[in-house]
Design a protein around this nucleic acid. Structure first.
Length: 175
DNA sequence: CGCGCGATTGTA
DNA sequence: ACAATCGCGCGT
């Protein structure tokens, strides 16, 4: 069943951890989230929200369960899910999902393959019919925590979460 | 209003 | 190691 608002209201790090193993549905695509990163607010130097709300980051201060899509390096899009209650900044970067036929590792590749771009920015997962995240019956929250990728600040934080390799194999069999 | 750079990726 | 490529954010 679809994840509810209370799930996305949790702390950003907790949401990032708990999204591992959840099922993401986007139009005709259905895959299991295998990798995420947590980005917080003014206390997280690596976050877009670090310097407060701007035209780009204001959505991170808005209500949870909304889609935040931004362009990176002029070429790729990255998919994020806004977390925490309105006024408290946070978002989870979805870095990897496993589809029945391919494992997409990397936020740019993921968006390119699913055709996620600016048109999806601002979508509310709670009310959308073609963009959802749901609990599956294979619930297994096991992951490794590592530093976040591609950042130069706050590299001490272990806020990247990757599904355990063995679990990936098992889930792939059941897809 | 101009300019430097980035939560990336594929190629050399 | 580096190019591709553009919108954002900050300084002027």
């Amino acid at each position: 069943m679809k994840l509810e608002e209370q799930f996305y209201e949790l702390s950003t790090v907790e949401v990032a951890q708990k999204l591992i193993g959840k099922t993401l549905i986007y139009n005709n695509f259905k895959g299991i989230i295998t990798e995420t990163e947590a980005y917080r607010g003014e206390d997280d130097a690596a976050s877009h929200a670090y310097k407060g709300p701007t035209s780009r980051s204001s959505i991170m201060f808005g209500p949870p369960a909304h889609v935040y899509v931004y362009m990176i390096y002029g070429i790729y899009y990255c998919l994020n899910i806004v977390t925490e209650k309105e006024g408290s900044a946070g978002a989870v970067l979805v870095r990897g999902i496993m589809l029945p036929d391919i494992h997409l590792n990397g936020p740019g590749k993921l968006c390119r393959h699913l055709n996620i771009d600016k048109k999806d920015h601002g979508i509310n997962l709670l009310s959308s019919t073609n963009f959802n995240i749901i609990n599956n019956e294979l619930e297994l929250n096991q992951f490794n925590a590592t530093p976040r990728v591609g950042i130069k600040k706050a590299t001490d934080k272990l806020w990247r979460f990757v599904m355990d390799n063995n679990l990936m194999v098992n889930k792939l069999k059941k897809l």
